[in-house]
Amino acid sequence: MQKRYSMIGGAIAALLLAAFFVIRGFLGKSTEFQSQNVARIALCDDSDEDLCVISFGKNGADGMVIAFQLPRADYPAFQAIATNKGVENIYPCEAVASAPMIVYCTGAATPLGESLAIEIRAIEGNILIARGDFTLMALMVASSSSSFNAVIAADEKIIAPTPTPGAGYPNP
């Protein structure tokens, strides 16, 4: 009986030890970043290993929005500085509350077809974390398919108001 308890104790100790090393491994990727190790920003479609750009967009008549995907949850708070033809614009950034791995920065629009140098600087210490060069050809990309448009054209043109979904669904 004593031997059995020792075995159980040993198994639990081994599990705890393994858990410790696994957790330490995760934490080992320190929350502090290396200032001398400046990452290159790419589009997320090309690489999402490090900070990457999800998309560029339009914010109002003359504003621009840049959405970033963070490489890890403990990435430092930052702001973006975009330079075009020597003019520097600061883009304050906000984390998406419902999806904290997404951060978007808003600021002045940049002329299309011209190169844009983006630097990412940590709020704390103004340290350069990442940088990349982009050329924006367009800020608005339509996403609907032509087949969808055809469905629209074929459908009825009168809409009826429907109530905001409430307690009726999901079905009980």
């Binding site: 995907q69 906000e94 998406v96 419902s98 997404i102 978007y104």
Partner: peptide, 13 residues
């Protein structure tokens, strides 16, 4: 999509 999450957050603010 990630764009939706961004747009909805912007909307909320």
């Amino acid at each position: 999509t990630r764009d939706d999450a961004t747009a909805l957050d912007w909307m909320g603010r």
